[in-house]
Amino acid sequence: MDNNRYDNVKDTSWKKVESGKAKIKFISSKRRSNMVKAGKVFCFILIAAVSGGLSGAYISSRREVTKIYTPNNDQILVEPKEKANNARTENTSENSITEAAEAVSPAVVGISNKAENYFGLQDLNSGSGIIVDSNGYIVTNYHVIQGADKVMVKLSSGKVLDASVAGVDERSDLAVIKVNAKNLPIARLGDSSKIKVGDIAIAIGNSLGEEFPGSVTAGIISALNRKIEYNGVVYKVIQTDAAMSPGNSGGPLCDIQGDVIGINSLKLSADSNVDGVGFAITINEAKNIIKSLIKNGQISRPELGISGESVISQDNKIQGIYIQQVEKNSGASEAGIKPTDILIELDGSKVNNMSDMEDILQQHRVGEKVKGKIWRNGRIIEAYITLSQIR
């Protein structure tokens, strides 16, 4: 908008009054004085209103958009920073956290793992779960139901139901259980690839067991793509400082919109002085596993059929996986791979450790052939390995 738009506008607020030959009727001085005062007040209010209105309209129009002209004289309208900043502030308000928690909490359940012993059914473990299908399918951590003789589910309404195990995947620490119920509230699964460090993170679950159902804690995303090794398996997880306890295992980690971005699984607790470090399996990694467990009760995951550890030569020229064991009837065995071989390359990519190998295998399916390079007694050997199904 042109800053000089008002420069040439004539002031029509006042008009010159010329004296004329009109009869003048005198009134009392007191009445005349009051009328003069009232007139002055009215004129002052009128001038203030007009000036304020014009100024407000001008400022409002200035704040509404900013005009930028490109070299081709194309006009671009840009939202003012003040307005954008206010929107961001509103999105991260406490009310937003409340709304997100209210949206997800109905789909969060408590899970009791019971085992039979000499004294009858006893509580073995407890955790949380997320309803992902209105017909009663619930995702949780494998370790929450591991070794259970009976699994009980407590809905957010307080109703307690028996659950059966639909499928488990020990490797990913995920499991799906099912209750006999219909029209259950479900959680909305988000896209964990879109989250950023510093985003709001909300953890919901039965902290410290059934005595604290539906506990809500909030923090931020502390780190992405963390690789945590647990019981010989490498997990790619989200790190958050949202407070967690063992009872949160299997519950959701949500973003500010109330979308599930992770499944709370591991907590760094080796050092009692460490706090504010929690981990969640990314929902993008979990989605296909959940679908497969619901449909098939198991996961079809490819493997070479080897186990080993990362090694590097003293001259740093050879680095890879030193193969300690080769499974019988596996793709590696049929390709002629032997213990003491060193796997240095797979599918055209260098392999420095087991995590590298797993990343490559995730891009393939059972039954596919991949080319591998083996270092054996000073020679490089090529081998074509048919991927078998992990057991």
Score class of each variant (00 low, 15 high):
residue 26 F to W: 05
residue 129 G to S: 10
residue 221 I to R: 02
residue 234 V to Y: 14
residue 95 N to F: 07
residue 149 D to C: 08
residue 97 I to Y: 03
residue 159 K to D: 14
residue 382 E to R: 04
residue 91 N to M: 00
residue 37 K to P: 07
residue 390 I to V: 04
residue 39 G to L: 06
residue 390 I to E: 01
residue 190 G to W: 09
residue 297 G to M: 05
residue 186 I to C: 03
residue 389 Q to G: 06
residue 72 N to D: 15
residue 369 K to M: 03
residue 390 I to P: 06
residue 201 A to Q: 11
residue 232 G to W: 09
residue 35 M to N: 11
residue 276 G to Q: 07
residue 336 G to K: 10
residue 94 E to N: 13
residue 66 T to C: 02
residue 8 N to H: 14
residue 248 N to M: 12
residue 97 I to E: 11
residue 275 D to R: 02
residue 273 N to T: 06
residue 61 S to R: 12
residue 273 N to M: 01
residue 230 Y to K: 12
residue 201 A to G: 00
residue 81 K to N: 03
residue 110 G to S: 09
residue 330 S to M: 00
residue 70 T to C: 01
residue 49 A to F: 14
residue 27 I to Q: 10
residue 232 G to C: 12
residue 27 I to R: 07
residue 34 N to E: 02
residue 266 L to K: 10
residue 11 D to I: 13
residue 217 T to H: 03
residue 49 A to W: 13
residue 19 S to Q: 02
residue 69 Y to D: 11
residue 183 N to D: 15
residue 75 Q to T: 15
residue 282 T to Q: 12
residue 111 I to N: 09
residue 204 I to Q: 07
residue 249 S to E: 09
residue 372 G to S: 14
residue 251 G to L: 01
residue 311 V to H: 00
residue 42 F to I: 08
residue 11 D to F: 15
residue 42 F to Q: 09
residue 365 R to Y: 07
residue 374 I to C: 03
residue 31 R to F: 04
residue 287 K to R: 10
residue 10 K to A: 06
residue 149 D to F: 09
residue 351 V to E: 06
residue 305 G to N: 08
residue 113 N to R: 09
residue 248 N to P: 13
residue 80 P to H: 04
residue 216 V to N: 13
residue 19 S to F: 14
residue 317 K to P: 05
residue 186 I to E: 12
residue 2 D to K: 09
residue 267 K to Y: 07
residue 145 I to W: 04
residue 112 S to Y: 06
residue 239 Q to C: 12
residue 105 S to L: 10
residue 315 D to Y: 10
residue 82 E to T: 13
residue 328 K to Q: 09
residue 112 S to V: 02
residue 383 A to P: 07
residue 28 S to L: 00
residue 350 K to S: 15
residue 39 G to K: 03
residue 4 N to I: 09
residue 128 S to T: 15
residue 140 T to M: 09
residue 333 S to C: 10
